[in-house]
Design a protein around this nucleic acid. Sequence first.
DNA 1: TTGTTTCATTGCAATATTACGATATAATAT
DNA 2: ATATTATATCGTAATATTGCAATGAAACAA
Lengths: 109, 109
Amino acid sequence: MGLAKTEMFTDEQNKISLFAKAFGHPARVAILQHLFKIDTCICGDLVNEIGLAQPTISQHLKELKNLGLIKGNVEGTSVCYCIDKENWASMKDIMTHFLDQDISSNNCC
Amino acid sequence: MGLAKTEMFTDEQNKISLFAKAFGHPARVAILQHLFKIDTCICGDLVNEIGLAQPTISQHLKELKNLGLIKGNVEGTSVCYCIDKENWASMKDIMTHFLDQDISSNNCC
DNA sequence: TTGTTTCATTGCAATATTACGATATAATAT
DNA sequence: ATATTATATCGTAATATTGCAATGAAACAA
């Protein structure tokens, strides 16, 4: 089907999978890493930095923006993007909680 | 296309996106959470716990196993699954490093 | 052997994702 | 006004993902 049955899962599980899905493409990972490194970044820089076409980058940026992980500010004809730190922090909390699960006992198999 | 151009990204970026993709479906998140909670788990229990059909669960388990995040042990007619803690830990290192990026300066926009 | 149980695999339909050319839009420059 | 620059959106082709019915395989039970 290609359609996840989200209604049978908890809000937390759905939230984790939505964030994870955003990181599920190397271009979006690269965009985020570049935004962290440069702190702020014009969209056009990302098109040069990463090797994908401009509409493709724009599409990836839109997904990240819809999730709230980045913000975009129009500056003349260009758009300045940066990490939304508050939302990044709360995303990090959720993901870290998921990754930090631990079990005391030994491996079963 | 539906095909990510992995060759234009770093190994780290591709690795992050592969792990993230595994967490990009709530059923796989639920499976992993259940394995952590129960420590060890028969495949059939997961089919009951989560509401998806047996072949669907089996498929999700296969993906997690291919990535090395879980292990499966045959026990008679059933199969016992559990987290591969070593691989989980190294995955966690990679993901945490990605999530923990920080910038000293203030928001740009 | 003949079922029975449990899980994996196959095949397929429905939907989602990725990528990009073409085009629209919006700000600025001349 | 017209051109230029930067980005967004649309449309579409190629591929991937999800879900499950049907079936296969493997261990066990009677």
